[in-house]
Design a protein around this nucleic acid. Structure first.
Length: 482
RNA sequence: GGCUCGUUGGUCAAGGGGUUAAGACGCCGCCCUCUCACGGCGGAAUCAUGGGUUCGAUUCCCGUACGAGCUACCA
């Protein structure tokens, strides 16, 4: 049988990396077996709906390459793929009423006021256990309430004895006492289904074979199984994924500053690296390989190798991985992506393509560029102590001497290409019988004004050009003479 | 509080009755080098805890601790 998985986000804002990973795993599980991956929008909570959030979801899916086979924009015969539309089509009401007929659900007319009398506070948390009050309403009372137009919800009728077991592909069998099973609400008074009901109905109607979702649903899964059983539907395979946490081992939240995919993109990460990184959070291949394209992931992804323990989102390692992608990137592609960052930092007419290549193996994330190339734009006000370097055996005095020797040589130098400049300086080095660094260190400091730069002295001079390079060397001489 | 799940270096993690307990990030050192970075080499650092079972447990079982999730007309 063909595998069908789904990703079913709620349009409530940016896409959390935990959700993105769930989407990725759902996609990989399906694609590994050449199955179908379905996108379904779960907009049943009108109060949490955020304008534009559906577009964010669609754009993120497109950017990351998690292309759905069926979804709101791609009807595969199981539509509509947006729950509010399905609700308007009467799907959930129809199935909820079937459950009532079977005695597996009942209408509940309890007011918020009555419900609040049932809640108690335990350790600061409000806990409400419904008492099945409306289960015992007589048919007359129900009809009366209906006639009066009293609002009601439909609740699942769970047994109070025995136990229910469900099987997870990763966690194995999980058994819960039925008395722990709450009579959860299936259909809200506004007619919308709750997640608890909609996911079961839709997963069945859409032929989902593998339900991939976050770990937080593991304790409600027994209730979902009872729903499948009540309908006489085949229970899908469940794959509950572990949580992604922050450095403090708490659920990754907005506070961390990088909890959403959009946050990461804004911070200069590239989609491929993000996808690669999150794939490895909670899953590992059977090899030492760490850099994977989406296609490679599809090939090697075995969901049995998903772990059970939560994993910390290691921002540091993401940066490293992003850097690996930078290094492996085609130079033209890299330039295209780096250009806006280069242009933001440099207004002068410089060879940005050459600068981009200098910076490529040195940055992890695009915003790193600015602090690395700023000296091309303007010579920083540096301290002469920079000229002193013990390993290069340079001092302020030696630097001054070298720069004064070099000035006329460079003034006469016609070819200001990196190669020609290097040859010229090398000739001086040999004539003096010193180490390369003895000469090149002061030159680089003079033309850059920085202790570390993305390139060597002659490469910098090539970019700067003769006029600016000489000007900076004269400035250095003046500084050293002062 | 109840229920459920989890626990291998700081982090991601492999492994799974007998191993010198992989690999990666980060950190440190060395090499390379026109600085830094890249690259290369090396180093420090781990089986939460107490009981079993066993000739032998990091691995299997039970308890404890710790962490997380659920306990909404949120998903």
């Amino acid at each position: 049988m063909k595998i069908r998985t789904r990703y079913a986000p709620s349009p409530t804002g940016r896409m959390h990396v935990g959700n993105l990973r769930t989407a990725l795993y759902a996609y990989l599980i399906a694609k590994h077996e050449d199955g179908d991956y379905i996108l379904r929008i779960e907009d049943t909570d009108q109060t949490r709906f955020v304008e534009g959030a559906v577009e964010i979801i669609k754009r993120t899916m497109a950017d990351t390459g998690l292309i759905e086979d069926e979804g709101p924009d791609k009807d595969g015969g199981c539509g509509p793929y947006v729950q509010s539309e399905r609700m308007r089509a009467g799907i959930y009401k129809e199935y909820a009423e079937k459950l009532i007929e079977k005695g597996e659900a009942y209408r509940c007319f309890c007011t918020p006021e009555r419900l609040s009398t049932l809640t108690q506070v335990v350790e600061g948390k409000e806990i409400t256990v419904y008492d099945k009050h409306c289960l015992h309403l007589s048919q007359e009372e129900i009809d009366q309430n209906l006639r009066e137009g009293k609002p009601y919800v439909i609740r699942q009728n769970n047994p109070t004895e025995g136990s229910t077991t469900f099987h997870d592909e990763l966690y194995g069998d999980v058994t819960v006492e039925n008395k722990e099973l709450e009579d959860m609400i299936l259909l809200k008074s506004d007619g919308y289904p709750t997640y608890n009901f909609a996911n079961v109905v839709d997963d069945h109607l859409m032929g989902i074979t593998h339900v991939v979702r976050g770990n937080e649903y593991i304790s409600s899964s027994p209730k979902y199984n009872r729903l499948y059983d009540a309908f006489g539907w085949e229970v899908p395979k469940y794959i509950h994924c572990p949580l992604i946490t922050d450095e403090d081992h708490h659920k990754l939240s907005k506070r961390s500053g990088h909890s959403s995919y959009e946050d990461l993109i804004e911070q200069g990460f590239i989609p491929e690296a993000v996808v690669n990184f999150i794939a490895l959070l909670g899953w590992s291949p059977d090899s030492d390989k760490e850099i994977f394209s989406l296609e490679e992931l599809i090939k090697v992804f075995d969901y049995h190798r998903i772990g059970k323990a939560p994993s910390v989102f290691d921002f540091q390692k993401l940066r490293w991985m992003n850097g690996e992608y930078m290094k492996a990137m085609d130079p033209d592609v890299f330039y295209q992506k780096a250009e806006p960052y280069l242009k933001a930092a440099l207004t002068k007419d410089l060879d940005l393509k050459k600068i981009a290549e200098m910076v490529r193996t040195r940055i992890e994330v695009f915003p790193d560029i600015a602090g690395m190339v700023d000296f091309f734009e303007a010579l920083p006000d540096y301290d002469v102590s920079l000229f002193t370097h013990k390993k290069m055996k340079t001092s302020a005095a030696s630097s001054l001497e070298v720069l004064k020797d070099l000035l006329p040589i460079l003034e006469d130098q016609g070819d200001f290409s990196n190669e020609a400049l290097y040859a010229a300086l090398k000739a001086y080095v040999e004539e003096k019988g010193v180490k390369n660094g003895y000469v090149l260190w002061p030159v680089r400091i003079a033309v850059s004004g920085k202790q570390t730069t993305p390139a060597g002295a002659t490469e910098i001079m090539e970019i700067l050009g003769k006029e600016e390079s000489l000007k900076r060397i004269r400035t250095a001489i003046a500084k050293l003479e002062a």
